[in-house]
């Protein structure tokens, strides 16, 4: 009897310890896995809700039938396919995009969006899936690449720009600081690029998207260097959505590795953007 009782107590004690350990592991896992209402909702509903300002082709816009199209739209749908969820878009003005995340109205912003560091108390950003900004375009034959300071490179050159655009302001700034810079303002970015193709200017300083799309049809031109004042486009989620963010980051990395992102960029902007 005494030995049985001792054995029972021993077994009970061990069981109790095991039970405590199991409970501790469960509690530790719960603590380790942050709550993410957006991710839970996506799983439950089988739907990813994407906020986008569809007024910005080729990233996000509407066609004559009101249907969305663009690089951002394709990116969202590619993510949805990989996750096995449907994608629902909310077309909303740019100023409201981050607000939709804060109030839990939408899950993610995919909208040619450049991260706003001052908002990181409320939102979190993925790695970039595209980099815009201002580009310098030159002729392949005889054109001078930018290997150092762009301002110094500009010395003695005629720079074609779109009148009144950012490239125009930048070129004028160079002209004030560097000897021999001539600014050639034209009505459109395409005209500025055509001027380079025609040999009427040494380079065009234009918006990256305009440059990429023009280069797609002009193999005689090329980029002089990486974007000046680069603008990386990212996706945004609520700061309370760490699990969703992690999944987006993983998916972006996979898309980068298997060429999906490059294919999207090339499809919408030409090979120079790949």
């Amino acid at each position: 009897m005494g030995r049985t009782l001792t054995l029972f107590r021993a077994v009970s004690g061990v069981a109790g310890i095991v039970a405590l350990l199991v409970a501790a592991v469960i509690a530790w896992r719960a603590w380790r896995t942050p709550e993410d209402a957006a991710w839970a909702r996506i799983q439950a509903d089988g739907r990813l809700v994407v906020a986008t300002d569809a007024s910005y082709p080729p990233f996000s816009a509407t066609d004559a039938n009101g249907d969305l199209f663009g690089l951002d739209v394709d990116l969202a749908e590619a993510i949805g396919r990989r996750w096995g969820v449907a994608v629902q878009f909310e077309n909303i003005t740019y100023d409201a995009l981050l607000g939709t995340l804060v109030v839990g109205r939408d899950d993610v912003v995919i909208s040619a969006f450049v991260a706003q560091p001052e908002r990181t108390r409320e939102v979190a950003y993925t790695a970039p899936y595209f980099v815009g900004g201002t580009l310098v375009v030159i002729r392949r034959a005889g054109g001078q690449l930018i290997t150092g300071d762009a301002e110094a490179w500009a010395a003695g050159k005629t720079l074609a720009v779109e009148y009144g655009a950012g490239g125009d302001a930048l070129a004028r700034q160079w002209a004030r600081r560097v000897v021999g810079v001539t600014v050639q303002p034209l009505d459109t970015a395409a005209a500025a690029l055509a001027s380079v193709a025609a040999g009427m200017a040494d380079a065009a300083v234009v918006d990256a998207i305009a440059a990429y799309t023009f280069l797609a049809a002009h193999p005689d031109l090329t980029l002089a260097g990486p974007p000046i004042a680069p603008e990386p486009y990212v996706m945004a989620v609520s700061a309370d959505s760490p699990v969703l963010l992690a999944h987006l980051q993983d998916t972006l990395a996979a898309m980068q590795a298997d060429g999906t992102l490059a294919d999207l960029r090339a499809h919408w902007l030409g090979e120079a953007a790949r």
Binding site: S55, P57, A165, D187
Partner: peptide, 14 residues
Amino acid sequence: DSPRWTRAVTPGAR
């Protein structure tokens, strides 16, 4: 006068 906003005009028109 954004180069891509669907509701923009050219810089000169602006």
